[in-house]
């Protein structure tokens, strides 16, 4: 197979797999009830509620960056599980769910370890046609992943 044929095959394959994945995901999502638009997004932070008293008033930077449209709630997690940190838009549609998820994950890392772990910079990878779907997934790597 010459170079151009290989690239064409790779492109067709990537588009095929990507298209099938999108179609399957949409079919699954369509067949099931949608999440409530006013639901809380939550992470559990392994810190006692007393340690996080100031978080609702002065949230970590990733949550603060979402501004006044964000509503924050803290509650003790059951047992020895720390504190549930919950967030949602004050009105459905004001914020993108993925942004809230991303901000919660980063905030949990900041509250637990004081930093958000990053991959090596600069990276060692190069862009290929077949890796474009993965590149997209990495770009959204800290957002919501559940189907």
């Amino acid at each position: 197979m010459d170079g151009s044929a290989r690239w064409t095959a790779a492109l067709v394959g990537a588009l095929g797999i990507g298209g099938a994945s999108v179609a399957a995901t949409r079919a699954v999502q369509k067949a099931r009830p949608r999440p409530r638009p006013d639901r809380w997004h939550a992470v559990t932070v392994d810190r006692a509620p007393a340690d996080l008293q100031g978080v609702a008033a002065a949230p970590p930077e990733p949550l603060a960056a979402l501004g006044d449209d964000l509503e924050i709630d803290l509650r003790p997690a059951p047992g020895d599980r720390g504190t549930e940190l919950r967030a949602r838009a004050r009105r459905p549609g004001l914020l993108v769910d993925a942004d809230v998820r991303d901000a919660l994950r980063r905030s949990r890392s900041l509250l637990e370890v004081g930093e958000v772990v990053q991959p090596d910079e600069p990276g060692t990878t190069r862009r290929t046609v077949t890796s474009l779907p993965l590149e997209l997934a990495i770009r959204h790597g800290r957002e919501g992943g559940r189907l």
């Binding site: 637990e112 790597g141 992943g145």
Partner: peptide, 16 residues
């Protein structure tokens, strides 16, 4: 570990 995977959404989609 909750804090060391820089792309948690990928495996969250696969495994919950």
């Amino acid at each position: 570990c909750d804090n060391t995977n820089t792309n948690p959404a990928i495996t969250e989609a696969l495994w919950g």
